[in-house]
Amino acid sequence: MNNKNIAVINLNISNLGSITRALKKLNYKSIVTNEIKDLNNSSHIIFPGVGSFDKGVEKLKKHNLYDNLFNLIEIKKKPFLGICLGMQLLGSVGHENNKEEKGLDILKGNIEKIEKKNDKIKIPHVGWNEVNQIKKDKIFKNIKNNTDFYFIHSYHLKLVNKDYVISYTNHGNNFVSCVRKKNIYGVQFHPEKSLNNGLHLINNFLKINA
């Protein structure tokens, strides 16, 4: 067993089994939690998530994580990986379910619905799609450019500062599939459901030290 303490944020809105199974497979201990003290004690924070933006914000506030998470990752610089909704919640504003909600605003940019450009573009964007790395980053160490990862989402983060973009993926239009701001990573795809390449990416993240 690896002796890092991985905290997986649990907002009680999504299936966390996939990510904890992936961590177990990689030989890491993890704690599934919504307690700030556990997050404080962790070496790495993973924020997985499926579901809607408004529900996510509501739950972050309910568990007193809205300000605390900001502190922990933006100020104290703890290594953080947001997956899917867990990445989108770092954005500025979301409009899912016709409700305007403010995200953590760590990654400036709004959460927008994928545009249906033609009949071939199905929404949600479900399935394996290429991740085009526009810059080298250790999160993709030993993962070839344009490797397929598994996506399932209807919204994406429209990032203002393009300097943070690590990769784009195309579904009608290009959208940001991996972002990095210093210690903070976000991926729109699901590495925990992307077979060996996905496990490899999670392992790369966990090797990053604070």
């Binding site: 299936n15 089994g17 199974r21 699901h190 992307s194 077979l195 060996n196 996905g198």
Partner: peptide, 28 residues
Amino acid sequence: ANETFMPLTVGGGIKSIEDVSNLLEAGA
């Protein structure tokens, strides 16, 4: 689910929110 690191869909006899919740928790 312990053997599948790819997306897993499960079906059969699902009738209630509780059934869905149980299956997702079990790893679907």
